[in-house]
Simulated assay, not measured.
Amino acid sequence: MHRRTFVAGSLTAAVAAAAPSTAAARTVGMTDVERLRSKFASLIASDHRHGGKRGIEQRAASLADEALNLQNSGSATQRVRSNLYATAASFRSSAMWAAIDGRRYHDAIGHMREAQALAELSGDQAIKFRIWSHAGTLYRHMGRPADALAANDVARNLYITRRDPLFASLGIARQMAIQGVAQDRRGLSRTFDQARDAMGRAEPSAPRPVWLLAFYDEAELHSLALSAYLAVGDWPTAEYHAHRCLAALRPHMRRSRAISTSRLAHAQLAQGQADAATRTAMSVPTDAATQHARVSRMLQEFSAALRATAPGSTSVSIWTEHTAAWRTPA
């Protein structure tokens, strides 16, 4: 992982960017931080609607720079400066996530290194957790389970996971997804139970960052289980978790619904349910099917699998006609 190397390199750049300007005349305060946080909340909402878009990535990176520029714009207390670094790290981690979601992994690694440097400057445990947990997800999608587990372990070993069981639950749940990629099927059920138990111990009213409250709940727990069981080829259990996920998803989680629906179609098809799988895949909204990199990839793989397992069937004809409409100009 070479954590010290890439954090130290980015740390130098971040410190330089944040060096105080001799021309500064104003005082930077928590009002400025709160203004940026409101933009962060808006960015999170956009991500859950659209996900993976390069525009979201660029907007997040720009807002990270805006937060750093405030460090140069005037005097500030140490508390304010720490919060500005944490906010900049939050934006940069959102840029990282958008790049992961769009399968732009090289870009994601660059954002990760900047985010890690800023998080170290901030001392904020919650944002450190987010970044290292995202790093685990990045390496999982890249097919590097050993690195994924190492990164996720950094997140899981932070003090915040002992203070708040909801953070612990998310760390365990993402470990479960990594176990799937590593083909560790024997430990999946136990890990799921541990994540669910930690979630049950979490105090509902405890103060938590907006990024965590916006997505981590029972639906996401089942989504990560769905990913894990698909990876090990346990199709019936994957289908079970898919239905549980879709039933619990909040309305704003449009990207998550498209991903889980696509995964459900795969699980059904692998069990020989070509007709049901085709109906499921057809329920994915066109914008997600054609514009979201992860969803598009999954549906392309579904199309190939459908033609291989049910050649010449009515399901293939229906699916072919359905996907042809995606390529037809309006």
Rank of each mutant, 00 (worst) to 15 (best):
H2V: 05
R4L: 15
G9V: 07
A16T: 08
A18P: 10
A19D: 10
A19R: 15
A19H: 11
A19L: 11
S21I: 00
T22C: 06
S46E: 15
H50M: 12
K53D: 13
S62T: 13
D65A: 14
Q71S: 05
A76Q: 15
T77H: 07
Q78T: 15
R81V: 04
S82I: 01
N83A: 15
Y85W: 14
T87I: 06
F91R: 04
F91Y: 06
S94V: 00
A95V: 02
I100K: 00
G102E: 09
M112F: 11
R113Q: 14
R113A: 14
A115R: 04
L121N: 01
Q125W: 01
R130G: 01
I131Q: 03
G136T: 04
L138W: 03
L138Y: 09
P145R: 01
D147M: 07
A150I: 07
I160G: 05
I160E: 03
T161L: 12
R162E: 15
D164K: 09
D164I: 07
L166F: 07
G171I: 05
R174V: 00
V181Y: 00
G187C: 02
S189F: 06
F192P: 00
A195V: 06
D197L: 10
A198W: 04
M199W: 14
G200T: 07
P204K: 03
A214C: 09
E218D: 13
A219H: 04
A228N: 05
V232F: 02
H243F: 03
R244E: 15
P251Q: 09
R255F: 05
R257L: 02
R257K: 13
A258F: 02
L264A: 03
Q268Y: 05
Q271Y: 09
D275P: 00
M282R: 15
S283W: 01
T286E: 15
A288W: 04
A288G: 02
A289Y: 03
A289K: 06
A293T: 13
V295N: 07
S296F: 09
Q300K: 10
F302Y: 15
F302I: 03
R307P: 01
T309C: 00
A310H: 13
G312Y: 05
T314Q: 11
T323G: 02
R327T: 12
